[in-house]
Write a protein that binds this DNA or RNA. Structure first.
Length: 271
DNA sequence: AAGTGGACCTGCTAGC
DNA sequence: TGCTAGCAGGTCCACT
């Protein structure tokens, strides 16, 4: 579920509030993607720092080490002064003197992993292969063009892979390609430098607009205050198979690439 | 090295 | 009404 905008919206709605809180207890529910990697007791008494984000990961620093969090496909975090007893999908509670940070994740593809530092294992390994942040000034047409030159496959899976630029998942990759008028099946290495510049700008602008809208809530995404996002109403191709393109009225097509659905306008988007 | 496919897990919906 | 197949915002890993 959560792509960069959703993760960043989550961070913004709890990151500063949890800073300075002291861990009072830790509750672990059903197994997530990876084990926590430390004893729950070892976290108790530590003061929490301000949450930061790298790609779709969040890093929550503690006095000694920190927690790397990922929301997977269906995860969301809430930070509340008072929480209900854990439900069947509440798999991690960080109870502090200011409130409880709770991970709810029905599919359990998410993760909460302890690391001694953000550049220590296992955090270092998980973050090692990540590409540029989309809002990093270094992510521009020249960078994208150079990175895509080696890619023989289609552009859409290359965007999703996250080793060139992070943050665009299935929704925003489709939306950015539509904005840049590029066919998702186009061979990545075939894109001209100007089209790469257009695509880099489209990725940035799509993510920025989603961020401003509070992310997308297709089913279950909520920010740390429990608020839904609104960007799903602004999607121009994602989930709109068969509906008319907002630009040319041609029916939006749905295809499958790398076992993921891709939505695009066969007329507006060119190879 | 880059591309592909399977794996992880649960809930919801469309269709019969 | 009830069952089943298919689908879902991610990404790691093994294999070619």
């Amino acid at each position: 579920m959560p792509e960069l905008p959703e993760v960043e919206v989550t961070r913004r709605t709890f990151g500063a509030r949890i800073r300075g809180a002291r861990v009072a207890a830790v509750r672990v529910g059903k197994p997530l993607r990876w084990p926590l990697g430390c004893s729950a007791q070892s976290l108790v008494g530590q003061t929490v720092g301000e949450a930061s984000r790298r790609g779709k990961y969040l890093w929550l620093p503690l006095e000694h080490g920190g927690l790397l969090l990922h929301l997977g496909m269906s995860g969301s975090l809430r930070f509340d002064a008072h929480v209900a007893p854990p439900g069947p999908h509440d798999h991690f509670d960080l109870v502090t003197d200011r409130g409880t940070l709770r991970l709810t994740d029905p599919r359990r593809f998410g993760a909460v992993v302890f690391a001694a530092a953000i550049d220590a294992e296992p955090a270092a390994r998980l973050l090692a292969g990540l590409g540029l942040e989309p809002f990093d000034p270094a992510f521009d047409g020249a960078h994208l063009h150079a990175a895509l030159r080696r890619r023989h496959g289609a552009i859409k899976p290359a965007l999703l892979a996250g080793d060139i630029v992070v943050g665009a998942g299935n929704i925003y990759a489709c939306e950015a390609l539509f904005a840049a008028r590029i066919d998702p099946r186009a061979r990545a290495s075939s894109l001209s430098r100007p089209r790469c510049a257009k695509l880099a700008a489209a990725v940035r602008e799509t993510l920025a607009r989603a961020l401003a809208a509070g992310g997308s809530t297709l089913r279950d995404f909520r920010d740390a205050h429990g608020m839904a996002g609104a960007f799903q109403h602004e999607a121009r191709v994602y989930g709109r198979a068969g509906q008319p393109c907002v630009v040319c009225a041609t029916p939006i097509r749905r295809i499958v690439q790398g076992q993921r659905a891709t939505y695009f306008c066969p007329r507006c988007q060119r190879r």
